[in-house]
Write a protein that binds this DNA or RNA. Structure first.
Lengths: 230, 230
DNA sequence: GCAAAAGTGTTGGGAGTACACCCATGA
DNA sequence: TCATGGGTGTACTCCCAACACTTTTGC
């Protein structure tokens, strides 16, 4: 590392791609900006890294502040960093993006400092007329692609489900995130055969209609062998 | 994003996990630090982000400076960011780590500002007595794991090979990075069957001994379907 | 009974593994 | 001629997609 230069003002922020499944669609949390630049436009939630805060702590704090919910109900992982010199017109800013996956949340979630917070379907945000502020469309696109890929080789789909869920509910997560249908019977066998993916409970439910379905919790493994291919 | 706070001095750096295969081992580029902190200890190459530079540009510039070679001979991609408040005793620093993969390079590569640069086997760096400065051991570990995973589902192993290479040479990349042997005959079929992985040339070589082997260039695909599982 | 969803059985094809075998070169 | 690695053929296994079929509930 060379001698450190003088410090041109530079800020580090943390931005969040918070994903959930609502109304059978993959949706992302967006906030309406209350001030310039991009005042009144939609953006991803986020904020400045504090002086004595590690990056994961900052992400968890922002998540709590924006959703009003404890961060331990989420899967939170680092996505990537973005630092184009002109990405924020106010000053030089490097942002570290995180993705958070959650089961369907109670309300449209009011943030503490954002003017308005709203879930919006990711396909509308990415393909529709809405442009997110800053480079947040790019960050959202990368986050969604990361989530899609992660479903293949990790048991992370369960992060979109309540603590106890049926195999059909898990399958619907895959179908919604990947945008394709899966054979219910083969899917059932595949996930129950993969040791450690699911932990069977004693309970069943009929909330999806039809014959009672066994309820499962997440298992212990972190990698799927073999992966479920898209 | 909240109102921006006053600026406590904060720096953004770029660190590099530069990997190559030398002497049948996976090796990483290390530099000996010429000043405190960690003076005289080994570290990953890296440096400060410049005021008007995007992150990939900074990574490419550092790579050129440290290896003395044009950055377009490398595969360069972002790994992750690290920002523990105490990771650099001098000041608050967030680093964006990149991984670079390259074919065997000419010399032990003298950097411009590092006291000394040296390739060192990653297993010695990770399991041996050497500790890298800062949190660079953790970054190296993450980078190696990323590289191992990427070989499974991308054609990136070719980044460790010269522009024209034989299937055996490609296979040896997998064997060295994964630390296991692969059946030469099945490997041959698997990679030649995957359309777009390899582009056949008209030439052959006997540099590996035995019957002349066909030389290939990298193909056009960026994802392997199906993946080559570890 | 009927609809709906859960879960099992079966079958055919495709991919992976193991390994026998032949090919083309250098020494 | 032999050693060395390149490349093909083949048999066996296992996984997976497709789909018929049975089970268990609500209405």
């Amino acid at each position: 590392m060379p001698k450190q230069p003088t410090f041109p003002p530079l800020a580090v922020t943390v931005d969040l791609v918070v994903l959930t499944i609502r109304a059978d669609r993959l949706q992302a949390l967006t906030v309406r900006r209350g001030e310039a630049p991009y005042e009144g436009e939609w953006a991803l939630p986020g904020g400045f890294l504090r002086p004595d805060e590690d990056l994961p702590d900052a992400a968890a704090r922002e998540l709590r502040e924006e959703t009003g919910l404890p961060a331990d109900g989420f899967h939170l992982e680092q996505l990537a960093s973005y630092g184009a010199p002109d990405r924020d017109p106010r000053m030089r800013t490097v942002t570290v993006a995180y993705i958070a996956l959650a089961a369907d949340l109670p309300a449209p979630t009011a943030g503490t400092d954002a003017a308005e917070a709203r879930w919006q379907p990711v396909d509308e945000l990415l393909d529709g007329p809405i442009r997110l502020a800053f480079d947040h469309s790019e960050i959202l696109r990368d986050g969604v692609e990361r989530a899609r890929g992660k479903l293949e080789y990790t048991p992370l789909a369960a992060a979109f489900c309540p603590p106890e869920f049926t195999i059909s509910e898990l399958r619907r997560v895959y179908e919604i995130v990947w945008g394709r249908t899966l054979d219910p019977r083969n899917f059932h066998r595949k996930v129950t055969r993969t040791a450690g993916f699911l932990q069977e409970t004693a309970d069943t439910t009929t909330r999806d209609g039809g014959r009672p379905a066994r309820l499962y919790r997440v298992g212990t493994i972190t990698q799927l062998h073999p992966p479920l291919l898209r």
